[in-house]
Amino acid sequence: MRFLLTILLALNFSFAKKTVKASDIIKRLEKGESVEIADAVIEGSLDFSGVGKLSRINTAMSEARIRGNVFFFRCVFKEPVIAQKNNANARFDGNLVFLESEFQKEVDFSNATVFGVVNFSKSVFKEGATFNQMAIWAKNSYFSEITANKKFSLEGTSFQGSLAIVSSKFLGRFSLQEVFVQENLQGSNTNFDGATDFAMLKVGNRTIFRYANFKFKPEFPENNSPPEM
């Protein structure tokens, strides 16, 4: 009986999610609207770099501007979620939030600029996740309690506030190479099962990795204050 109940609950959970087409989300963003979606399966690749009319930023690069907030809660993304493609990057004027979501394909926000809050907490990345060379202006950015099954990279990204990657699990390679964190870097209680790269990391205030587990010994640059382990 209990077994049957468990199955029914599981079925109920999966059937509860509605389906939303990525192209419909892009259409709303193109109108400058905010997007708030919960408990949905997003079908199709979500490509922020193609939103609206692109602004040229130099002879080769263009930028898509997303004026509204982006908020997803308990969503499943079946296809890639990207913010750069064909020499076009994305600029988010508002928040960029994906809470408790599951990314089944790769995620790539490289080169994006974000002026609002960045929060990917409790999300699961089944494929590679790349947040390289981003400019994030929020006071706090959160990648806490996430699980990244493969490579997770924030290389070259500039955080004008603090960065939290607390209680997360990184099963593949994890890189904070050449990352700049203006305030605090908090990575406590996180498991790093793959190789880590902290080369050229610059942290303005405290670097905290209390109770973090590193399978391979991390090498922190000497120019910062020593990490609190």
Partner: peptide, 22 residues
Amino acid sequence: RFMRWNSSATISSDTYNDPGMQ
């Protein structure tokens, strides 16, 4: 990043935003 590289670390990503980098 390659242009300004000054490290014994491994380079694994780069940007091509500088027009010359194209």
